[in-house]
Design a protein around this nucleic acid. Sequence first.
DNA 1: CAATGACTTACTGTTTACAATCTACAGAGA
DNA 2: TCTCTGTAGATTGTAAACAGTAAGTCATTG
Lengths: 226, 226
Amino acid sequence: MIPDDVVSPLPSQRGLGDLVTDVLREMITGGKFQPGQHLKETELADALKVSRGPIRQALTRLEEEGHVEIRRHRGAFISTLTKTDVEEVHTLRGAIEKLAASRACTRMQGVGFAEMDAVLEQMKSVDTKIDPEDAVRLDLQFHDIIYAYCDHARVLRVWESIRGQVTVFLRARNASFPDFLDVGYSEHKELRDALALGDPQAAQDGIDKHILGAYERLKRLNLPDR
Amino acid sequence: MIPDDVVSPLPSQRGLGDLVTDVLREMITGGKFQPGQHLKETELADALKVSRGPIRQALTRLEEEGHVEIRRHRGAFISTLTKTDVEEVHTLRGAIEKLAASRACTRMQGVGFAEMDAVLEQMKSVDTKIDPEDAVRLDLQFHDIIYAYCDHARVLRVWESIRGQVTVFLRARNASFPDFLDVGYSEHKELRDALALGDPQAAQDGIDKHILGAYERLKRLNLPDR
DNA sequence: CAATGACTTACTGTTTACAATCTACAGAGA
DNA sequence: TCTCTGTAGATTGTAAACAGTAAGTCATTG
């Protein structure tokens, strides 16, 4: 028997549609398109050297993630970020991450917390480097661990469906409040310690506080109401 | 200017893919397929007189709703219901419905509660008729009202993604515990009264109790672990 | 001058055809 | 008899062609 660790990475076991989804998501969250911009299937297909099939698949996925809006016979348009979006994403995230954390805190054991500590260690060093992109990546990595250990496929799927928008928010936060990079470590360290208690209720309270803090900061951003 | 209330419902503004999704979902939740059955795109396309495009779209949607499992180059297979599925759906539903209820209870005003009371009234009459299918429909209708008034597009989307499986559970419950048809009214009436307090915390507690009760009953079903 | 209606254009929704990939089974070798 | 390998068959992934629809434009009419 060959151990799982050495199975060939299989260059691409995922379909083209999934690849295109990732590429477009990265372009959108990276700000390559203007809000409201019309994404035409044929243009995207030509640009990415694939046919319209995978493009359509990707666009429907991205619609579910809130990155684009699809209007029948009109096409896909880049969503404009509104106060409503910020509120919805944060309240929904709070709801599912509380559930995720209450389950994860009793399942992470030593190995899960070791992963968290590794991320926290990097967060500390970010304070000196101050690369906003690293801060975003580490923030997401930290929370990914919670979702990974909650052992709940459906919660994980919901998280994946809002993760991209959370990325957008984090980048916007770093752009508007560059000083936040300094407090990232302490806030996540606090959350880690709450989880380490192994008490589901304490874990939920920790998440509540954490998400609420993130929401309060973002509310200061000047966004259209809807 | 014509008020929004009277705009024509637009007979069928939805695409073929959406229609196929609904048809297949109804067939699956209605038990037309055996668990594990292999759904072949070409067969479905021939049977429904459409091409494979809309079929593919429908199958990916149904995968997201947990009704089928898609394995690359193998096709779509009807999901077998497991204890894990029951647990995941109920815990996730609890999380989002608490959020939905806490928002809805302050937004339903008179009109929302009137809708609920109309459903409750029918539930009472069901007790005499005892048509299990009506019981399922009314149960869903009741909760749909909560989601409709919570004014949260993303929560609504998550609900829609698990609503089909909840339907399956309700039907299974009615099949295994036919006597439950009698308590459906009182349980929902209790929940309605909790929402009517207009207190978000009370609303959440009401949902917690309601969902937990549903979960406890379903746990008695004899299902495979995974 | 405003409003309506036909026409044009460009896009998406759908169908059809082709290519890549996987599974299953049979046969050869140990 | 068991295992491995090669081939055949079937099914999905992908591409391209076709058809239908909505928005925009411009002429026409009240």
